[in-house]
Design a protein around this nucleic acid. Sequence first.
DNA 1: CAGGATCCTCGAAGATACTG
DNA 2: CAGTATCTTCGAGGATCCTG
Lengths: 113, 113
Amino acid sequence: MLHDVFLADCPARTTLDLVSHRWTVVVIHGLGIEPMRFGELQARIGGISAKSLTETLQRLERYGLVVRLDGTWTLTTLGETLLEPVSALARWSEAHTDELLDAWDRHETGTSS
Amino acid sequence: MLHDVFLADCPARTTLDLVSHRWTVVVIHGLGIEPMRFGELQARIGGISAKSLTETLQRLERYGLVVRLDGTWTLTTLGETLLEPVSALARWSEAHTDELLDAWDRHETGTSS
DNA sequence: CAGGATCCTCGAAGATACTG
DNA sequence: CAGTATCTTCGAGGATCCTG
Protein backbone atom coordinates (compact mmCIF):
# COMPACT_ATOMS: atom_id res chain seq x y z
CA MET A 1 0.00 0.00 0.00
CA LEU A 2 2.07 2.87 -1.30
CA HIS A 3 -0.65 5.49 -1.19
CA ASP A 4 -3.49 5.16 1.24
CA VAL A 5 -6.31 7.56 0.62
CA PHE A 6 -7.07 7.52 4.30
CA LEU A 7 -3.83 9.12 5.36
CA ALA A 8 -4.36 12.82 5.72
CA ASP A 9 -1.02 13.85 4.29
CA CYS A 10 -1.05 11.19 1.64
CA PRO A 11 -0.15 12.42 -1.83
CA ALA A 12 -3.01 10.36 -3.22
CA ARG A 13 -5.22 13.11 -1.92
CA THR A 14 -3.91 15.11 -4.84
CA THR A 15 -6.26 13.28 -7.15
CA LEU A 16 -9.18 13.89 -4.85
CA ASP A 17 -8.37 17.56 -4.69
CA LEU A 18 -8.25 17.51 -8.45
CA VAL A 19 -11.63 15.85 -8.76
CA SER A 20 -13.14 18.06 -6.11
CA HIS A 21 -12.79 20.97 -8.49
CA ARG A 22 -16.14 21.55 -10.06
CA TRP A 23 -15.15 21.32 -13.71
CA THR A 24 -12.32 18.82 -13.75
CA VAL A 25 -14.45 15.79 -14.44
CA VAL A 26 -16.50 17.50 -17.11
CA VAL A 27 -13.42 18.81 -18.91
CA ILE A 28 -11.65 15.46 -18.83
CA HIS A 29 -14.81 13.81 -20.00
CA GLY A 30 -15.13 16.36 -22.79
CA LEU A 31 -11.59 16.06 -24.08
CA GLY A 32 -12.03 12.32 -23.85
CA ILE A 33 -14.61 12.52 -26.61
CA GLU A 34 -12.26 14.41 -28.86
CA PRO A 35 -9.54 17.04 -28.65
CA MET A 36 -11.02 20.48 -28.79
CA ARG A 37 -10.12 24.11 -28.99
CA PHE A 38 -10.86 26.43 -26.12
CA GLY A 39 -14.00 27.90 -27.60
CA GLU A 40 -15.41 24.56 -28.61
CA LEU A 41 -14.93 23.19 -25.15
CA GLN A 42 -16.50 26.19 -23.51
CA ALA A 43 -19.46 25.98 -25.86
CA ARG A 44 -19.99 22.30 -25.16
CA ILE A 45 -19.84 22.69 -21.43
CA GLY A 46 -22.81 24.62 -20.22
CA GLY A 47 -22.25 27.53 -17.90
CA ILE A 48 -18.51 27.53 -17.45
CA SER A 49 -16.76 30.89 -17.47
CA ALA A 50 -13.64 31.49 -19.52
CA LYS A 51 -11.72 32.03 -16.35
CA SER A 52 -12.75 28.76 -14.79
CA LEU A 53 -12.04 26.86 -17.97
CA THR A 54 -8.62 28.45 -18.21
CA GLU A 55 -7.84 27.62 -14.62
CA THR A 56 -9.03 24.06 -14.96
CA LEU A 57 -7.07 23.45 -18.15
CA GLN A 58 -3.90 24.96 -16.74
CA ARG A 59 -4.17 22.95 -13.57
CA LEU A 60 -4.62 19.78 -15.59
CA GLU A 61 -1.74 20.83 -17.81
CA ARG A 62 0.48 21.26 -14.80
CA TYR A 63 -0.33 17.77 -13.68
CA GLY A 64 0.48 16.44 -17.11
CA LEU A 65 -3.07 15.39 -17.86
CA VAL A 66 -3.66 17.61 -20.86
CA VAL A 67 -1.51 19.43 -23.39
CA ARG A 68 -2.17 22.23 -25.79
CA LEU A 69 -1.00 21.36 -29.26
CA ASP A 70 -1.38 24.09 -31.82
CA GLY A 71 -4.36 25.62 -30.09
CA THR A 72 -6.03 22.30 -29.49
CA TRP A 73 -6.38 20.84 -26.03
CA THR A 74 -5.72 17.14 -25.89
CA LEU A 75 -5.50 14.49 -23.22
CA THR A 76 -2.04 13.13 -22.59
CA THR A 77 -1.42 9.43 -22.19
CA LEU A 78 -1.72 9.92 -18.45
CA GLY A 79 -4.89 11.92 -18.95
CA GLU A 80 -6.40 9.12 -20.97
CA THR A 81 -5.87 6.69 -18.12
CA LEU A 82 -7.84 9.05 -15.90
CA LEU A 83 -10.57 9.02 -18.47
CA GLU A 84 -11.58 5.53 -17.45
CA PRO A 85 -12.52 6.13 -13.81
CA VAL A 86 -13.95 9.51 -14.75
CA SER A 87 -16.17 8.01 -17.39
CA ALA A 88 -17.20 5.33 -14.95
CA LEU A 89 -18.32 8.10 -12.67
CA ALA A 90 -20.13 9.87 -15.48
CA ARG A 91 -21.90 6.67 -16.44
CA TRP A 92 -22.92 6.03 -12.85
CA SER A 93 -24.19 9.55 -12.72
CA GLU A 94 -26.28 9.19 -15.83
CA ALA A 95 -27.65 5.90 -14.61
CA HIS A 96 -28.49 6.63 -10.98
CA THR A 97 -29.37 10.29 -10.79
CA ASP A 98 -33.05 9.48 -10.76
CA GLU A 99 -32.60 7.31 -7.70
CA LEU A 100 -30.63 10.05 -6.00
CA LEU A 101 -33.37 12.55 -6.62
CA ASP A 102 -36.06 10.10 -5.56
CA ALA A 103 -34.29 9.50 -2.28
CA TRP A 104 -33.97 13.22 -1.84
CA ASP A 105 -37.68 13.70 -2.36
CA ARG A 106 -38.54 10.99 0.13
CA HIS A 107 -36.52 12.80 2.77
CA GLU A 108 -38.13 16.06 1.76
CA THR A 109 -41.59 14.80 2.55
CA GLY A 110 -40.39 13.10 5.71
CA THR A 111 -38.96 9.62 5.96
CA SER A 112 -40.38 8.43 9.23
CA SER A 113 -43.83 9.93 9.07
CA MET B 1 -28.90 9.79 -23.55
CA LEU B 2 -31.17 10.66 -20.70
CA HIS B 3 -28.70 12.69 -18.71
CA ASP B 4 -25.93 14.50 -20.46
CA VAL B 5 -23.21 15.74 -18.17
CA PHE B 6 -22.54 18.58 -20.52
CA LEU B 7 -25.88 20.22 -20.06
CA ALA B 8 -25.57 22.87 -17.44
CA ASP B 9 -28.93 22.24 -15.82
CA CYS B 10 -28.65 18.49 -16.15
CA PRO B 11 -29.57 16.51 -13.04
CA ALA B 12 -26.53 14.31 -13.61
CA ARG B 13 -24.54 17.22 -12.28
CA THR B 14 -25.92 16.18 -8.92
CA THR B 15 -23.41 13.38 -8.77
CA LEU B 16 -20.57 15.66 -9.73
CA ASP B 17 -21.58 18.11 -7.05
CA LEU B 18 -21.61 15.21 -4.64
CA VAL B 19 -18.15 14.06 -5.64
CA SER B 20 -16.81 17.58 -5.65
CA HIS B 21 -17.28 17.65 -1.91
CA ARG B 22 -13.92 17.03 -0.38
CA TRP B 23 -14.78 14.07 1.81
CA THR B 24 -17.46 12.25 -0.13
CA VAL B 25 -15.14 9.90 -1.96
CA VAL B 26 -13.11 9.10 1.12
CA VAL B 27 -16.21 8.37 3.21
CA ILE B 28 -17.79 6.16 0.56
CA HIS B 29 -14.51 4.39 0.12
CA GLY B 30 -14.24 3.93 3.86
CA LEU B 31 -17.71 2.55 4.40
CA GLY B 32 -17.06 0.35 1.40
CA ILE B 33 -14.43 -1.48 3.39
CA GLU B 34 -16.80 -2.12 6.24
CA PRO B 35 -19.67 -0.43 8.06
CA MET B 36 -18.37 1.76 10.83
CA ARG B 37 -19.43 3.89 13.70
CA PHE B 38 -18.94 7.63 13.61
CA GLY B 39 -15.83 7.65 15.76
CA GLU B 40 -14.22 4.81 13.91
CA LEU B 41 -14.73 6.53 10.61
CA GLN B 42 -13.38 9.80 11.87
CA ALA B 43 -10.33 8.05 13.29
CA ARG B 44 -9.64 6.25 10.05
CA ILE B 45 -9.92 9.33 7.94
CA GLY B 46 -7.12 11.68 8.74
CA GLY B 47 -7.90 15.30 9.40
CA ILE B 48 -11.64 15.41 9.02
CA SER B 49 -13.58 17.45 11.55
CA ALA B 50 -16.64 16.08 13.27
CA LYS B 51 -18.71 18.75 11.59
CA SER B 52 -17.55 17.87 8.11
CA LEU B 53 -18.05 14.19 8.71
CA THR B 54 -21.54 14.81 10.01
CA GLU B 55 -22.39 16.98 7.04
CA THR B 56 -20.99 14.50 4.56
CA LEU B 57 -22.82 11.55 6.13
CA GLN B 58 -26.10 13.41 6.29
CA ARG B 59 -25.82 14.55 2.73
CA LEU B 60 -25.13 11.00 1.61
CA GLU B 61 -28.00 9.81 3.77
CA ARG B 62 -30.33 12.25 2.10
CA TYR B 63 -29.37 10.90 -1.26
CA GLY B 64 -30.00 7.38 -0.09
CA LEU B 65 -26.37 6.34 -0.31
CA VAL B 66 -25.82 5.53 3.35
CA VAL B 67 -27.97 4.64 6.35
CA ARG B 68 -27.38 4.69 10.02
CA LEU B 69 -28.40 1.40 11.60
CA ASP B 70 -28.07 1.21 15.34
CA GLY B 71 -25.25 3.70 15.44
CA THR B 72 -23.44 2.12 12.56
CA TRP B 73 -23.10 3.83 9.21
CA THR B 74 -23.57 1.51 6.27
CA LEU B 75 -23.72 1.82 2.52
CA THR B 76 -27.13 1.21 1.00
CA THR B 77 -27.54 -0.89 -2.12
CA LEU B 78 -27.40 2.29 -4.14
CA GLY B 79 -24.33 3.39 -2.22
CA GLU B 80 -22.60 0.15 -3.03
CA THR B 81 -23.09 0.73 -6.73
CA LEU B 82 -21.32 4.06 -6.31
CA LEU B 83 -18.52 2.23 -4.60
CA GLU B 84 -17.33 0.85 -7.90
CA PRO B 85 -16.54 4.08 -9.75
CA VAL B 86 -15.30 5.61 -6.54
CA SER B 87 -12.92 2.77 -5.92
CA ALA B 88 -11.80 2.99 -9.51
CA LEU B 89 -10.90 6.57 -8.81
CA ALA B 90 -9.12 5.66 -5.61
CA ARG B 91 -7.15 2.99 -7.40
CA TRP B 92 -6.20 5.39 -10.14
CA SER B 93 -5.15 7.83 -7.49
CA GLU B 94 -2.95 5.34 -5.71
CA ALA B 95 -1.41 4.25 -8.99
CA HIS B 96 -0.72 7.54 -10.73
CA THR B 97 -0.07 10.10 -8.03
CA ASP B 98 3.65 9.80 -8.55
CA GLU B 99 3.26 10.74 -12.18
CA LEU B 100 1.09 13.68 -11.24
CA LEU B 101 3.67 14.98 -8.84
CA ASP B 102 6.49 14.37 -11.30
CA ALA B 103 4.68 16.39 -13.92
CA TRP B 104 4.12 19.11 -11.38
CA ASP B 105 7.79 19.22 -10.53
CA ARG B 106 8.76 19.45 -14.18
CA HIS B 107 6.59 22.53 -14.55
CA GLU B 108 7.95 23.92 -11.34
CA THR B 109 11.50 23.94 -12.62
CA GLY B 110 10.32 25.27 -15.95
CA THR B 111 9.23 23.19 -18.88
CA SER B 112 10.50 25.20 -21.80
CA SER B 113 13.64 26.76 -20.33
C1' DC C 1 -19.32 9.30 22.18
C1' DA C 2 -22.12 11.43 18.47
C1' DG C 3 -23.36 15.01 17.01
C1' DG C 4 -25.69 20.33 16.90
C1' DA C 5 -24.88 25.45 16.89
C1' DT C 6 -22.09 29.27 16.00
C1' DC C 7 -18.35 31.97 14.15
C1' DC C 8 -14.68 32.50 10.98
C1' DT C 9 -11.44 31.71 7.17
C1' DC C 10 -10.09 30.77 2.77
C1' DG C 11 -10.43 29.61 -1.88
C1' DA C 12 -13.26 28.26 -5.97
C1' DA C 13 -15.88 30.23 -9.26
C1' DG C 14 -18.54 34.11 -11.64
C1' DA C 15 -18.67 38.87 -13.80
C1' DT C 16 -16.53 42.25 -16.09
C1' DA C 17 -13.07 44.62 -18.56
C1' DC C 18 -8.89 44.39 -20.94
C1' DT C 19 -4.96 42.44 -24.14
C1' DG C 20 -2.15 39.93 -27.89
C1' DC D 1 -10.57 34.08 -30.50
C1' DA D 2 -8.02 32.79 -26.30
C1' DG D 3 -6.90 34.04 -22.77
C1' DT D 4 -5.27 37.61 -18.43
C1' DA D 5 -6.31 40.73 -14.47
C1' DT D 6 -9.15 42.44 -10.88
C1' DC D 7 -13.01 42.43 -7.86
C1' DT D 8 -16.55 40.12 -5.55
C1' DT D 9 -19.53 36.53 -3.87
C1' DC D 10 -20.63 32.37 -1.83
C1' DG D 11 -20.14 28.20 0.52
C1' DA D 12 -17.23 24.28 2.14
C1' DG D 13 -14.74 23.22 5.82
C1' DG D 14 -12.20 24.06 10.40
C1' DA D 15 -12.31 25.49 15.44
C1' DT D 16 -14.64 25.91 19.43
C1' DC D 17 -18.25 25.33 22.61
C1' DC D 18 -22.42 23.08 23.89
C1' DT D 19 -25.81 18.99 24.44
C1' DG D 20 -28.42 14.37 24.73
